[in-house]
């Protein structure tokens, strides 16, 4: 399974989980409202609710712990032993991207790069991302419009993002952090061959 498919699944998973959660919440609200047509002694009613609560409490803790255990192993951050096949340097500038293959040897302001860059498919790429002015965010979309991955471009800091493109094709860089007047047009292209 490619990393894009995994991400697609995760984004859809977010939607499905939230929809399921919302349905449960609405069902509980309807149940609670409909229960008020009958009266029950307040202590008996409370006892019933609190016995459910105890089970809910342990169930929720279990779900959260399992959720943490699984999800904290899927972090997008670089691993200590990560090895890159190639490095790509990225500098965000109001309101365009400077991108070039290889390590950056100059400061972000002097760095020369283009709004388009070509990289190989099926290689572990190391993107070293920074900014020459304000905060930007380096978001990569595939040609289907799926947000594949992202990291912030912050002045004075290098954010290192490892990513492998499994499918060749056109990918689109979109600035995901508000950076001023023409932020919505701060776009670039990655050709994956």
């Amino acid at each position: 399974m490619s990393s894009i498919t995994i991400l697609m699944t995760l984004q859809n998973l977010a939607g499905v989980l939230t929809l399921a959660g919302a349905i449960i919440v609405v069902a509980v609200v309807i149940f609670v409202i409909s229960s008020t047509s009958k009266e029950e002694d307040k202590d008996a009613a409370k006892h019933k609710v609190y016995s459910v609560r105890t089970r809910y409490f342990f169930g929720l803790c279990l779900v959260l712990i399992v959720g943490l255990f699984i999800s904290l192993r899927l972090l997008p951050y670089p691993r200590a032993n990560a090895v890159a096949d190639e490095t790509v340097s990225i500098v965000g500038v109001q309101w365009f991207w400077k991108m070039a293959n290889g390590e950056r040897t100059t400061g972000p302001l002097e760095f020369v790069g283009s709004n388009e860059v070509t990289v190989p498919a099926k290689k572990n790429l190391k993107f070293v991302v920074t900014s020459a002015d304000v905060n930007h965010s380096f978001g990569i979309y595939n040609s289907k419009g799926v947000l594949v991955t992202q990291t912030q471009a912050m002045p004075q800091y290098n954010n290192v993002l490892y990513h492998q493109f499994d499918e060749p094709g056109e990918y689109y860089v979109v600035c995901m952090e508000y950076c001023g007047q023409t932020h919505s047009y701060m776009v670039g292209k990655i050709h994956v061959q």
Binding site: V28, V32, I33, S35, T36, S37, K38, E39, E40, K42, A45, K46, K48, V49, Y50
Partner: peptide, 8 residues
Amino acid sequence: IAQVYHSK
């Protein structure tokens, strides 16, 4: 929920 449940 404990407030409202079967509270008439």
